[in-house]
Amino acid sequence: MSDSNAITAEIVAKAARLSRIALSEDERLVMAEQLERVRAWAALLQDVPVADVAPMLHPHEGAMRLRADEDTGQTLTVSEVLANAPAQAEDHFLVPRVVG
């Protein structure tokens, strides 16, 4: 694949926004340079003919395990739910006001 896919500081900025990770401008530049190196290295894959190969998403074929629709005593108490919460209000998690 051509360099049109090259990872630039702008692309890093967009992915960082989607990832909700704040980056300074310097960090963006450094990361763009590092990630572009990784991308260029991974471009090795672009030469492999894979059109007739189905993506492999799980190591084994076959069905997943299901569970019965039963209360198996896994429900946490409200205080367990909130035990590690950085901020809470009246048994709710508290975040900056979201405009609904």
Binding site: A87, D91, H92, V95, R97
Partner: peptide, 13 residues
């Protein structure tokens, strides 16, 4: 569910 209050939004899961 989020509900919105003066000091922020409350989250009930």
């Amino acid at each position: 569910k989020s509900s919105h209050h003066a000091q922020g939004s409350w989250v009930d899961l």
